[in-house]
């Protein structure tokens, strides 16, 4: 069976581009705090969501709605309405992280398929099976901190499908629990839906070098001809004493394209491409590339060599934790 390509759609135009480029499935979110890509100018209003889901279905693709932030106390109704409206739009599944929302969806929309977001940071078979048994979750998006053998071990015990990230921004934190961005900006990726919100990002030219700041903190300084990063704290370059370096991770992107055969061998059902904040041009290029790769794998042909590095943050890519040697 062909591995499913799950593709980002930050706007209706990106959704159409992804579907036309061969996405088996697209995922998108409403234009509010209920999804973890709550950036200005992005996402879907209710009418756009209905049209987008319809467009995907008309072209043989599935559409998932990410409602993967955590409701604030007393404000759950915003998240409940998002689940209700996603169900009404005909979405094939909702991607949730909060147990309360999972319970709400399971109780009020028993026919709605539930996927567990990477924001839930479910990284072992016991917790995955708990979500499956308790709420009827059918698929889990695994955190980007697992090696291929660890994923295989999870799949050997898990009762549900697994989906893993193969391309795009690389988060190595316990997703859904990281407070680095909150510390610098006062806005939470997990509750407001924005890691390193653009409203707190500032770029400043310092004699040809580019300073990238977040909430007033200089996160990175790129020399004149160096690639520019987006200032996320976990990818910042810091000085302490006489040493300067990337404390958590380099500003590179994930590209696990060449690991697709091993991921299939490990029992993975679906491959996720990160990047709802990226343009329709990016989405179309990446989706075509990965669709060609999974089709080649299915046909027993060699995987096409990727040419996507220039699209990546830092213009450099890594296989991330999938082939880690540091732990």
């Amino acid at each position: 069976m062909v591995m499913e390509i799950v593709c980002p759609a930050g706007t209706p135009a990106a959704l159409r581009a992804a579907v036309k480029a061969g996405a088996h499935t697209v995922y998108c979110g409403f234009n509010d705090e209920t999804n973890a890509r709550n950036f200005p100018g992005l996402n879907f209003d209710r009418a756009e969501m209905r049209e987008g889901v319809g467009f995907a279905h008309d072209h043989g693709s599935k559409a998932l709605v990410a409602i993967n932030t955590f409701p604030r106390a007393g404000d759950q109704v915003l998240w409940h309405h998002a689940i209700d409206d996603a169900a009404q739009s005909g979405a094939d599944a909702v991607i949730l992280a909060d147990p309360g929302l999972l319970k709400y969806a399971a109780r009020n929309h028993p026919g709605l398929r539930l996927h567990l977001s990477v924001q839930a940071a479910a990284a072992n078979a016991d917790i995955i099976n708990f979500y499956a048994c308790t709420f009827g979750v059918k698929r889990v998006v695994l955190p980007r901190v697992l090696s291929v053998p660890e994923i295989a071990a999870i799949n050997a015990e898990a009762e549900v499908e697994t989906e893993v990230f193969v391309f795009g921004g690389l988060c190595v934190m316990a997703e859904g629990r990281c407070s680095l961005s909150s510390y610098a900006t006062g806005l939470s990726p997990n509750m407001n839906g924005v890691c390193s919100p653009a409203s707190h990002v500032e770029y400043r030219d310092e004699n040809g070098a580019l300073d990238a700041k977040l909430g007033g903190f200089t996160i990175h300084r790129a020399a004149k001809n160096e690639p520019a990063p987006y200032p996320t704290l976990c990818k910042g370059c810091f000085s302490a004493g006489s040493q300067t370096g990337h404390l958590f991770e380099d500003p590179v992107s994930l590209n696990a394209e060449q690991l697709i055969p091993q991921l299939k061998e490990a029992g993975v059902t679906a491959l996720k491409i990160e990047g709802r904040q990226r343009s329709k041009s990016y989405v179309a290029q990446v989706v075509r590339n990965f669709r060609a790769a999974v089709d080649a794998l299915e046909a027993g042909q060699p995987l096409p060599q990727g040419m996507l590095a220039r699209l990546s943050e830092g213009q450099a890519v890594t296989t991330g934790a999938y082939k880690k040697t540091w732990r």
């Binding site: 580019l210 790129a222 690639p227 987006y230 220039r310």
Partner: peptide, 12 residues
């Protein structure tokens, strides 16, 4: 829509 804005930005 010929170019990706982030890629242009990363490349300066």
């Amino acid at each position: 829509g010929t170019y990706d804005g982030d890629a242009l930005f990363f490349a300066r």
